[in-house]
C-alpha cells in the first residue's frame, strides 16, 4: 500500500523479550489498580471529619489510577509526539472548561445570588 516499508519496526517492537517485559508491567499495574480500589473503598469507611480531605483523597487515588491506565495500558508514556500535542490541546481546553465554569459560578455577587 505504501512504499515506506522500512518504518515497520518503529511502531511496535515485536521482540519477544520486549513484549514479555511489557506483560510484566501490565500485570504489575493491574495489581496496583486493584489495591488502589480497595484503598479508596476502605478510606470511605473511615469517615474523615474534614469534607475536603475525604474528597481530596478519593480524587487523588482516582487520579493515580487513571494515570496508571493512561500511561501503561494506553502506553501514553512511550507515545509519539503528535499524540502528546493533541492531548496537550485537550488538557488545556479541559482545564479551561472546568476551571472557568466553576469560578464564574462561584463568583456571583451575593446580592444577586439566586442562581
Amino acid at each position: 500500500m505504501s512504499n515506506h516499508s522500512h518504518s515497520h519496526a518503529d511502531a511496535h517492537s515485536h521482540a519477544p523479550e520486549e513484549v514479555a517485559k511489557h506483560v510484566k508491567t501490565y500485570l504489575f499495574v493491574f495489581g496496583a489498580l486493584l489495591v488502589a480500589t480497595v484503598v479508596t473503598v476502605a478510606l470511605n469507611y473511615l469517615h474523615f471529619d474534614s469534607k475536603v480531605l475525604t474528597i481530596g483523597i478519593a480524587l487523588l487515588v482516582a487520579a493515580v489510577k487513571a494515570s496508571l491506565v493512561a500511561c501503561y495500558f494506553m502506553h501514553l508514556i512511550s507515545e509519539k509526539k503528535m499524540i502528546y500535542v493533541i492531548m496537550a490541546f485537550t488538557t488545556f481546553f479541559f482545564i479551561g472548561l472546568m476551571a472557568l465554569t466553576v469560578i464564574s459560578y462561584l463568583e456571583v455577587p451575593p446580592e444577586t445570588a439566586t442562581r
Partner: peptide, 25 residues
C-alpha cells in the same frame, strides 16, 4: 490511501491511531 497499517515516517503513527486519539480527546 497510505499509512492505513504502517506508520507514517515523520509522525511515527498509522492513521487509525491518530483517529482514535482525536476521538478520545
Amino acid at each position: 490511501i497510505p499509512y492505513t497499517s504502517k506508520p507514517r515516517p515523520d509522525t511515527g503513527i498509522y492513521n487509525a491511531k491518530v483517529g482514535i486519539w482525536l476521538f478520545l480527546a
